[in-house]
Amino acid sequence: MSEITAEQVAHLANLARIDLSSEEIARLTTELGQIVDSVAKVAEVATPDVPATSHPMPLTNVFRADTVVPSLTVEQALSGAPDRDGDKFRVPAILDEE
């Protein structure tokens, strides 16, 4: 059985920036446990000799020329903003520095 704990789910929710309620955390702990149990079987066949595939089509070196293309207008850029101040997006005070 899976070892997923409520603390772990709370930590994941914090990483994912979702303010889950304690009921949500409890429910997700159970569900996540079940899901993880069933998806963990990938490890059975993922032996070291098998290379990983990240893209279905193996392309490399897809580049764009360094040529300026028109940007959005400032009004378009800010058209969906929940809050703005002049031509900038406005966000509540930031607690953590990066």
Partner: peptide, 9 residues
Amino acid sequence: GSAQKVRTL
């Protein structure tokens, strides 16, 4: 990582 290997298989 394992899931991406399964993808190869």
